[in-house]
């Protein structure tokens, strides 16, 4: 009994972890299902068919391709713009800091449905038809703040003396940035980029407001499928995504723990 009491916290922690992971496990298991009807909600019998032909569900791979493209572009642009802003906030003193902070914070404090619908009104009033470009613009906008937060955390924890040391040793401002500041900020920038990509790739609500029938992203595809039936292939994609994410996060962790040990 005291043993249980002593490890109560560990049990609670593991139970919550299980709560977080069980859906992913279920998705993985059901990617091997051969459902009876159109909905993949009940276990019927084992089949690897969906794994062998993940593009079997019409339109799925096109949607996936679009999501990947938008995700890469949005993550890239948001990372560049966000990193610049983070450097300004973390490394410089200037007037208008609180206004800048407010503008960065607001997108994070605004529900997606508000951002999605307001962008729709902007594009409608400007006479711009919905589509993949609008989606990308929207994704860059809401990813930017998250990149700023991730990079700023890293930049403001850097010791300013390292930059002074570089200048003292004869590095001009550009060399200092390239050889000292940037490498040291890199983990924050990588984390920001990764976060931006996953936010973009996963977004349904904002995307839905700004998409056209010819710009169906993967989450929209899943949503549409959920109305008519859930093809097993989307479970395959979900499992692959989980595995990729797991790999990326494991590599990231290994890199950062190696840095902690060695650098």
């Amino acid at each position: 009994m005291t043993w249980i009491k002593r490890h109560l916290l560990a049990f609670a922690a593991l139970a919550v972890l299980a709560y977080l992971l069980i859906p992913n496990l279920v998705v993985a298991i059901f990617s091997f299902n051969d459902p009876r009807g159109r909905y993949n909600y009940e276990w019927n019998e084992f089949s690897a068919a969906a794994w062998l032909n993940p593009c079997g569900s019409p339109g799925l791979c096109e949607a996936l391709g679009l999501s990947l493209r938008i995700g890469f572009i949005a993550a890239f642009v948001a990372t560049v713009l966000g990193t610049l802003v983070a450097f300004a906030l973390g490394r410089h003193r200037f007037r208008g800091r609180s206004g800048t902070n407010l503008l960065i914070f607001m997108p994070m404090a605004t529900p997606e449905v508000v951002m999605g619908s307001s962008l729709l009104t902007l594009f409608v009033m400007a006479g711009i038809p919905s589509g993949a470009v609008n989606i990308t613009i929207a994704h860059i906008m809401f990813c930017l703040s998250f990149v700023v937060v991730a990079v700023k955390a890293r930049v403001s924890s850097l010791d300013p003396r390292l930059e002074e040391a570089a200048a003292d040793l004869g590095a001009n401002p550009f060399q200092t940035f390239l050889r000292v500041t940037l490498p040291l900020a890199a983990p924050g920038i990588a984390a920001g980029a990764l976060l931006a990509f996953s936010l973009s790739f996963d977004d349904y609500i904002i995307t839905n407001f700004n998409a056209s029938p010819s710009s169906i992203t993967f989450p929209m595809y899943v949503w549409g499928a959920a109305q008519r039936g859930t093809p097993v292939e989307i479970f395959v994609v979900g499992t692959v995504m989980f595995l990729i994410a797991l790999t990326v996060v494991v590599i990231g962790q290994m890199l950062s723990s190696r840095r902690d040990r060695k650098a």
Binding site: E42, D202, P219, V249
Partner: peptide, 26 residues
């Protein structure tokens, strides 16, 4: 610690919609 952190972050990087569908199964 690191393993647990990975297990917390990884699901966050997988599709929100698909995980919600999984709850229909669960």
């Amino acid at each position: 610690k690191n393993i647990m952190l990975i297990l917390v972050i990884a699901p966050f990087f997988t599709s929100f919609l698909i995980r919600t569908l999984a709850w229909r199964i669960i």
